[in-house]
């Protein structure tokens, strides 16, 4: 939206209510001892340097660290009771691959996803002297998001991963059921309460895929890649 302050007069002229706004503005400005409403330009040729006008500050956005992320992925894409510290114990070879993928690309990436270790944590869980100081809390950044996008694309290239996660719905990879999309969303967004607008748009997008498995894969890929579910 390309909105400018010069549009104010146009907006106000369309409604009598706008006059009240103009009067209100004028009154408030006078009340504030005639403070300027325009941004104060930086005086480039004086030592004054302009007056500061940034009194608000941003906040750091905290997101799930490697322990929480890997735990969520293991819950969604590996059989029950899988142990990320012992992927070889899994009987299915694709599960082993998925397990190793979660382990190598999430759990052991302390620099990327943060999450430090306690003294009792073992090397199998990616704990060693070098990552003890990376910090427990993770904040959003580009490398982390790139790593997560890459991870999701690899994860969902396995049919088996998709099948396991759909069992949590429960749903069948070869039978797309619209009414189960809400439950799939809740796997990533537990607080989600069915929203017809969101679901109808997702279904409409999924409609462009012929195979039922691809419809599920498409929605799962969007869910996995979507950044919101990792926000604390």
């Amino acid at each position: 939206m390309n909105l400018r302050l010069s549009n104010l007069s146009h907006i106000f002229s369309r409604s009598p209510f706008g006059s009240w706004i103009v009067v209100g503005c004028a009154f408030l400005v006078l009340f504030q001892n005639c403070q300027k409403m325009e941004p104060i330009p930086i005086d480039e040729n004086s030592i004054q340097g302009g007056e500061p006008r940034l009194h608000e500050t941003g906040v750091t956005i905290k997101v799930a660290n490697r322990f929480l992320l890997s735990s969520i992925f293991a819950d969604l894409y590996l059989p029950d009771n899988s142990d990320l510290g012992n992927c070889n114990a899994l009987s299915n070879n694709t599960d082993k691959s998925t397990c190793n993928l979660i382990r190598s690309k999430i759990l052991l990436q302390a620099q990327l996803y943060k999450g430090n270790c306690s003294h009792s944590d073992s090397a199998e869980l990616g704990c060693n002297a070098s990552n003890a100081e990376v910090g427990a809390i993770s904040s959003i950044n580009l490398a982390r998001e790139a790593g997560r996008i890459n991870f999701c694309e690899r994860l969902l290239s396995f049919d088996r991963s998709l099948t396991v996660s759909l069992e949590r719905v429960p749903a069948n990879i070869n039978k797309f059921e619209q009414e189960k999309v809400s439950a799939l969303i809740q796997l990533y967004y537990p607080e989600y309460q069915s929203n017809p607008d969101i679901e109808s748009k997702l279904l409409s997008l999924a409609d462009s895929f012929e195979k039922d498995s691809d419809k599920w894969r498409f929605i799962s890929l969007a869910l996995c890649k979507s950044p919101g579910w990792q926000v604390n």
Partner: peptide
């Protein structure tokens, strides 16, 4: 689809 999912909670727009 990601933009739709981001509507679940407005705080998600930050990321």
């Amino acid at each position: 689809a990601i933009h739709q999912l981001n509507l679940i909670n407005k705080k998600y727009s930050r990321v």
